[in-house]
Design a protein around this nucleic acid. Structure first.
Length: 172
DNA sequence: ATTGTGATTGTTCCC
DNA sequence: GGGAACAATCACAAT
């Protein structure tokens, strides 16, 4: 459980989410989020990181992508991102480990690629560093990337390796 | 026109 | 080790 709403993320019910954005509260868009959420949009300090790779979607996001299509398909009326988010969140928790497995597997794959990007990113950052003296500081703590797992060419996007095992976790 | 925001969870990074 | 920020999406609003 994780305390569930401990985070208090849902300060307000989804109410506003179900209905179009007509809340007068919108007036305080970012002003309020500083309190609860940390503003996630670049501030004036936008540090330019052209090479900075975006974080790979987590298993939840992978699942969400598919879920969003279905959700919208059955709920074309709902155009609130928050609605899908909440619905997806609940469903996600409803999934069993086995069902999340495929999503996690995909997420893991994304992570592997991300690791490589990070390597390049770190490298670039190092050379771009103001102090050229630092040429290379032994690769920062780059994530360990297993070469064997890394497929640079062969595997397309669809790999059906279900070699993995089956952990039939039937939750009671 | 563009950017920001709302909401979900997971992951990843920096110190 | 922990905290903090960020990942996508959609439609709209405000600047």
């Amino acid at each position: 459980m994780k305390g569930g709403k401990g985070k208090g993320a849902l300060r307000k019910e989804t109410r506003s989410a179900l209905k179009p954005v007509e809340d007068p509260k919108m007036g305080k868009r970012k002003a309020a989020l500083k309190d609860d959420k940390k503003k996630v949009t670049k501030d004036k300090k936008a540090k330019k990181d052209p090479n900075k790779p975006k974080r790979p979607p987590s298993a939840f996001f992978v699942f969400l992508e598919e879920f969003r299509k279905t959700f919208k398909k059955e709920n074309p009326n709902v155009k609130a991102v928050s609605a899908v988010g909440k619905a997806g969140g609940e469903k996600w928790k409803s999934l069993s480990a086995a069902e999340k497995a495929p999503y996690e597997a995909k997420a893991a794959k994304r992570k592997a690629e991300y690791g490589k990007l990070m390597n390049a990113y770190n490298n670039k950052q190092a050379e771009s560093s103001d102090d050229e003296d630092e040429e290379e500081k032994e690769e920062r703590s780059k994530p360990e990337v297993h070469d064997e797992d890394v497929e640079d060419s062969g595997q397309g996007e669809e790999e059906d390796d279900e070699d993995e095992e089956d952990e039939d976790e039937e939750d009671d």
